[in-house]
């Protein structure tokens, strides 16, 4: 399986703070990777670099064969739009748009808003019946599933999830992880940033960060939960 993402000696410095130190990492297509670490370990910084929202101060990032670490803002925007699906801990839904319109928003910036396709995406995450509801009318779990539907609508090469279960109770966490399993089974490449070992254990690979350094890269200690 070819590498979808490669980081070579990536560092990120904010003023006097070094958030990432010489990270070298490859992720294969279809792999489910968990990036773990305590608060301030650099995992969100790593996600922002991989998600084309920040450029590294040093090193090379190659996504889907394209060196993205030296692209300008407009080119990075195009990469985010076409190849990356973002899932956030705080959902970040547009409050004045309905569920289906929130999904269509990603289509709108990508190419063409297609309501039928957006409804199908909602059906896939079990929200078909909530298409006309505003985010405030949805539960936390439903909002996260909506966020996932939005991330998937443009068929991204890489799904980046930042603490996707951080604001969810156990049952909703299980529902979200089940969706990730389905995506993984379907061949999607998933990177989940989490501080939760329970969530990380669902991945087939765990990358551990501490103070911006990669201190572990390997399979979970326990067998994967199906």
């Amino acid at each position: 399986m070819k590498n979808i993402l490669e980081l070579h000696d990536v560092s990120m410095v904010y003023g006097s703070v070094t958030a990432l130190r010489n990270i070298t990492l490859s992720i294969r297509q279809g792999e489910w990777t968990a990036i773990m670490g305590s608060s301030g370990s650099g995992k969100t910084t790593l996600m922002n670099v991989v998600g084309c929202m920040n450029k590294p101060t040093h090193g090379t990032v190659i996504l889907d064969g394209e060196k993205i670490s030296r692209l300008n803002a407009k080119e990075l925007t195009a990469i985010r739009r076409d190849r990356i699906g973002l899932i956030f801990q705080e959902f970040h839904l547009i409050s004045y748009l309905t569920a289906v319109e929130n999904v269509m928003l990603a289509q709108y910036y990508h190419s063409m808003a297609d309501e039928e396709e957006a409804l199908q995406a909602l059906e896939r995450v079990g929200l078909g019946h909530r298409a006309g509801h505003l985010p405030r009318q949805l539960s936390g779990g439903e909002q996260q599933r909506l966020c996932i539907a939005r991330a998937l609508i443009n068929h991204p090469k890489l799904i980046l999830a930042d603490e996707p279960t951080g604001n969810l109770d156990e049952s909703n966490q299980a529902a979200v992880l089940e969706i990730f399993h389905k995506l993984h089974d379907a061949g999607s490449t998933i990177i989940v940033v989490t501080h939760s070992p329970e969530v990380a254990e669902h991945a087939e690979r765990i990358v551990q960060l501490e103070f911006g350094r990669m201190v572990r890269d390997g399979a979970p200690a326990r067998p994967m939960v199906a």
Binding site: G51, T77, A78, R81, L86, H92, I94, L105, Y109, H110
Partner: peptide, 8 residues
């Protein structure tokens, strides 16, 4: 968010 989703 819109820019993260790819808005220019």
């Amino acid at each position: 968010l819109k820019k993260a989703l790819g808005a220019e």
